[in-house]
């Protein structure tokens, strides 16, 4: 238990370091990109632009901006005012969009896990059968088609040809189902392949053969003796899976008109909304870091051979 605790503490330290590094790099990058956030087709006189800058503390020397903003984040959790969406603070934007993106990601991941593991187990057990081929073929297809194409095809199919889902929008389970499926599909495909490979490996091990030899029923052997070992690679894939789901949500939020935070980022970056972009990057970094740490932790707990470092 103590090693768990000290692991968590150390991880937290690394997280702070990561976040700080990301903050610094993003800060430099954003200032290095030419153009300023007040570009607009109607030119603003210099004196007024200065007032606008003052509002966002952009008139201070870069070092001061750097520290001021950092202090604000650390002491007050205040990410500042969005430059482009001027009625909103970055915290408000995140608070509005985050639950949407999180719901979408959770549903997509859960869907991917359920479907992927099931498909992987089935095709490993019936290795070489037509079902195995079909499942794995579908899985490769899932990996080989970009998700914006997949989503567009899914809309044609499930909105118009077989009208079971609404076209877009947010607010009901039916509305979120289709984007979650599209978002989860590539992850599901990957998990299915990992599970199958893991299953096949464990199936060949001695303890499994012994279990079969003892005359245990097939389902018991698979669930109790094969699956836990076979799922290890899947668990370690959950970190990258989260990253891929978060990235994919940028696309799906756009196609399905979902009010999540993904779509904000592209705007923030391309429209020089420094504060919003920074808020996004930091949020995603923390999220990914926590997820990766949890995955490593789970891995260490589940797999007795692995020690926490």
């Amino acid at each position: 238990m103590t090693d768990l605790f000290s692991y968590a503490i150390r991880r937290f330290g690394w997280m702070l370091l990561t976040v700080w590094a990301v903050y610094t790099v993003s800060f430099v990058l954003m200032r290095a990109v030419p153009g300023n956030p007040f570009s607009s087709e109607r030119t603003v006189p210099p004196a007024i632009e200065r007032q606008l800058r003052a509002r966002y503390n952009l008139d201070a020397p870069p070092i001061e901006q750097y520290t001021d903003y950092l202090v604000g984040i650390v002491t007050r959790g205040d990410l500042g005012v969005s430059i482009r969406l001027e009625d909103y603070t970055v915290n408000e934007v995140l608070a509005e969009g985050f639950p949407v993106s999180a719901s979408l990601a959770i549903l997509a991941l859960v869907f991917a896990l359920t479907l992927g593991v099931t498909a992987g187990v089935v095709s490993a057990v019936y290795r070489g059968s037509a079902g195995d081929l079909a499942l794995m073929g579908t899985a490769v297809l899932g990996i080989a088609i970009p998700n914006f194409v997949l989503a567009s095809l899914a809309i044609l199919l499930f909105v118009f040809i077989i009208p079971i889902f609404p076209a877009a929008g947010w607010g009901t389970l039916r509305q979120v189902a289709l984007p979650a499926l599209c978002l989860g599909a590539p992850v599901a495909a990957y998990i299915a392949r990992l599970t199958r490979a893991g299953m096949l490996e464990v199936l060949g091990r001695e303890h499994v053969r012994t279990a079969f030899a003892k005359g245990l029923p097939k389902s018991t052997v698979i669930l109790k003796h094969v699956l836990p070992g076979a799922l290890l690679p899947v668990v370690s894939y959950l970190g990258p899976a989260t990253a891929s789901v978060l990235t994919g949500s940028l696309v799906l939020e756009k196609i399905f008109a979902l009010p999540g935070i993904g779509s904000h980022f592209i705007y923030a970056a391309t429209q020089r909304d420094y504060t919003l972009a920074m808020g996004m990057v930091l949020t995603y970094t923390v999220l990914l870091f926590v997820m990766n740490s949890l995955v490593d932790l789970s891995y260490a707990v589940i797999d007795p051979r692995v020690k926490l470092q």
Binding site: S26, A269, F289
Partner: peptide, 15 residues
């Protein structure tokens, strides 16, 4: 590990 947690897509957009 640290780099794994960086949302690279965002860095790419900047770059």
């Amino acid at each position: 590990d640290m780099l794994y947690s960086i949302p690279f897509i965002f860095v790419v957009i900047f770059l």
